[in-house]
Structure formats: C-alpha cells, structure tokens
C-alpha cells in the first residue's frame, strides 16, 4: 500500500515476566500523528521498540514502509527520540553539535564521515528548533527541556518520514510539555512527517494527534481523538466524568 508507513499483524511480545503485547494489529498511514496511550506497564514502549527492531517479536509480523522488519534497511527514513533521561550519560563528552550530527549517520555510507553541508544542515536544524545558541554547549550542561530539543533535533536532522517518540515529555513541566507537543505537531504539518508518540497523558496529546491508540497489552481503541471521546468502550473504561475531563480540557 503506497501510503502505508507502519503495519503490524497479530504482533505479540513477551518478557520473562510474561506477555507484554498480545495480537497487536494496526496500520499507520503517511501524515498520521498517532498518540499511543495507556497505563503504566501497558506495553507502549515495548510496542515502539518492537516496531524499531530493538526487541524480538515472539509472533506476528511488523513492517515499516512496506518492508518486513527483518528486511528493513532504510533507517534514514526514521527519526527516533527515546526517553531521554534513561539515554543520556550526564558526563558524556559531546557537544550539542556533535550529538545532533549523529542523526545524520543513517544517510551515510562507509566510512560514515560528515561533510561541510552536513554541518550546515545541523546548524539549520538547531536554528529551526531555536537552540542554535546551544551549539557548543556540552549535553551534560543542558536543562531537561533543552536536552529534549537537542534530541529532537538529532531525530529530525536527517529529514525522516517517520518520527517515533517514546515518552518524550516525561521529565518536562506542563508548560514545556505543551510547547514540545506543539513543536511536534508543526513538524507533522509542515514537513508531512508521520508521527508515532508514546505518552501516558491522553488529554494533552489529544489536542494534536490525528489518531489515538489506547493500549493495555492489547489494543483497546484505535481511531481519531473525536471517536476516542465518543467511544462507549472508553467511557466504560475511564468513566464518563474522566473521559469528559480528558477530552475537554483544551
């Protein structure tokens, strides 16, 4: 299918403690902004890791851009922003410029060297995200919000077609979080980038996402945010009052 970006069929994953994902089937099309929500331990991050080939899938299948995951090689089409607090070693001796440059490696052939135009591209991306003044700073010297933007710059510097974000706002205050979601929505609109964003905050993401995927080991809901708000299944899950608060807070 030409517009197919992510597709899974009956995907299941297990850890030693037991099954984390069960029979996950869904399709993400070009230009979608999908918010993946659900309670703690519902398998949101596991789903993202399975889609990126970072963990082994027990059964079922997943494909990216129409290619089976095992055959997928076009990593330059993907930008990934993991939960940054777990990722960054505070004493890692890299500048912001060097860190963002790592995002360009997926477009490079051996030996993966950056050239002058790559460095210009890094600066343009930093400027777009309004963090060019941080270029020479060490990543250990950044605030949570700045670090998040730097890692976002790293994820989008190679002009990806799919942006995958795993709880990107977990360490941010509500104001910075909302600004961040707005920034992702702008990237989705202006660049036509398909977005998969994991969050536990169903309400905040609802303002921006075109689709919601509610997960609790299985997919309990997949559709638009409006459908999510009208869904009787979601009403019975959250209770009408909570669903109303979640859907009308903006």
């Amino acid at each position: 299918m030409p517009g197919e970006i992510v597709s899974t069929k009956m995907l299941s994953c297990s850890y030693r403690e037991g099954r984390v994902l069960e029979d996950i089937s869904f399709l993400v099309e070009r230009g979608d902004y999908v918010g993946i929500v659900g309670p703690n331990g519902s398998g949101k991050s596991t789903l993202v890791k399975a889609l990126l080939g970072l963990i082994t899938v027990n059964s079922g299948s997943a494909s990216l851009f129409g290619s089976r995951l095992s055959d997928f090689r076009d990593w330059h089409k993907i930008g990934y922003l993991p939960q940054s607090l777990h990722l960054v070693n505070p004493v890692f001796p890299a500048t912001v410029h060097e860190t963002v440059g790592l995002g360009l490696l997926s477009r490079k052939k051996f030996p993966k060297r950056l050239n002058k135009s790559d460095h210009t591209k890094i600066n343009i991306t930093l400027e777009e995200l309004a963090i060019l003044e941080l270029e020479r700073k060490m990543i250990g010297e950044l605030s949570g919000g700045q670090l998040q933007r730097v890692l976002l710059a790293r994820a989008i510097v190679n002009d990806p077609e799919l942006l995958v974000l795993d709880e990107p706002t977990a360490a941010l205050d509500p104001e910075t979080r909302d600004r961040f979601y707005g920034m992702i929505a702008e990237i989705n609109r202006s660049r036509g980038v398909t977005v998969l964003l994991v969050t536990h905050d169903s309400g905040a993401i609802g303002e921006h996402a075109s689709k919601m995927l509610y997960l609790d080991k299985k997919i309990l809901f997949y559709g638009s945010f409006d459908e999510f708000c009208c869904s009787p299944e979601m009403s019975s899950l959250f209770g009408e009052h909570s669903q109303h608060l979640m859907c009308h807070r903006h």
């Binding site: 090689r73 990593w75 993991p82 890692f92 890299a94 995002g103 997926s106 490079k108 030996p111 060297r113």
Partner: peptide
C-alpha cells in the same frame, strides 16, 4: 579507528539510538 570513528562514537553515546540509525 579513523574509518569507524563515527560509528564508535554512536555506540558509545547510545546503542539503541545507534541501531535505529542503521549502525
């Protein structure tokens, strides 16, 4: 080390990110 410099840099920064960058 010179030929693989950027890939070594990438895995030192994060294995997970390096994998998703095709390293």
């Amino acid at each position: 080390l010179t030929l693989y410099y950027n890939e070594l840099f990438a895995i030192s920064f994060s294995d997970e990110l390096a994998k998703v960058s095709g390293v």
